[in-house]
Simulated assay, not measured.
Amino acid sequence: MTHSTMYQFRLDANEKRQAFEVFDELGIKPAQAIRLFLRQVTATKSIPFDVAIPNATTQRAMQDVEAMIADKQARFSSNKELFDALEKAD
């Protein structure tokens, strides 16, 4: 006979609501969804979806954007304008 155990965690109320709506549409209970996730972690010995550390280029781009935002002078009217500014920063 297996023994069950409880585990509690906190999450954003909106995130919870959205996820529980999906579980409801799938016809499963939240506890079933968590068990499915944990079984996949155990079976694959990994997170069952892609999780990646950003490469150096992506990290540099994120730092550049953060610096522009911190500067408070950077205001962009479009994505193109932002990307043009990022290219000039290199």
Rank of each mutant, 00 (worst) to 15 (best):
27 G>C: 05
58 T>G: 00
45 K>G: 15
48 P>F: 03
51 V>M: 04
60 R>N: 09
71 D>W: 07
26 L>I: 02
89 A>P: 00
24 D>M: 02
8 Q>F: 04
54 P>S: 08
65 V>P: 02
67 A>C: 03
10 R>V: 11
6 M>V: 14
90 D>W: 00
87 E>A: 09
7 Y>D: 03
22 V>H: 06
1 M>F: 07
11 L>Q: 08
71 D>A: 13
24 D>H: 10
59 Q>T: 08
49 F>K: 05
81 E>K: 12
4 S>C: 01
56 A>K: 07
74 A>I: 11
70 A>C: 04
78 S>D: 10
75 R>I: 13
75 R>Q: 14
33 A>M: 01
83 F>C: 03
15 E>C: 00
55 N>Q: 08
9 F>R: 03
10 R>K: 14
14 N>G: 13
61 A>Q: 09
72 K>G: 11
71 D>I: 02
18 Q>T: 15
75 R>C: 12
35 R>H: 13
56 A>W: 04
28 I>T: 06
29 K>H: 09
66 E>H: 12
64 D>P: 00
6 M>Y: 11
26 L>N: 06
17 R>P: 01
22 V>K: 12
28 I>E: 05
44 T>K: 14
12 D>N: 13
49 F>G: 09
43 A>L: 15
66 E>M: 12
89 A>F: 01
36 L>Y: 11
41 V>M: 10
70 A>E: 13
32 Q>H: 08
89 A>C: 00
76 F>E: 07
26 L>H: 07
27 G>W: 10
66 E>I: 07
8 Q>A: 15
3 H>M: 12
6 M>P: 10
34 I>A: 11
79 N>A: 02
90 D>Y: 01
32 Q>R: 08
87 E>W: 01
77 S>C: 04
9 F>C: 03
80 K>E: 14
48 P>V: 03
10 R>C: 05
73 Q>A: 01
47 I>K: 01
84 D>P: 02
80 K>W: 02
25 E>S: 14
61 A>N: 10
46 S>M: 04
41 V>D: 09
2 T>V: 13
36 L>T: 05
21 E>Q: 14
6 M>Q: 15
12 D>W: 02
44 T>Q: 15
77 S>A: 14
58 T>F: 00
90 D>K: 09
15 E>R: 00
86 L>E: 05
61 A>M: 11
1 M>E: 03
75 R>E: 12
47 I>F: 08
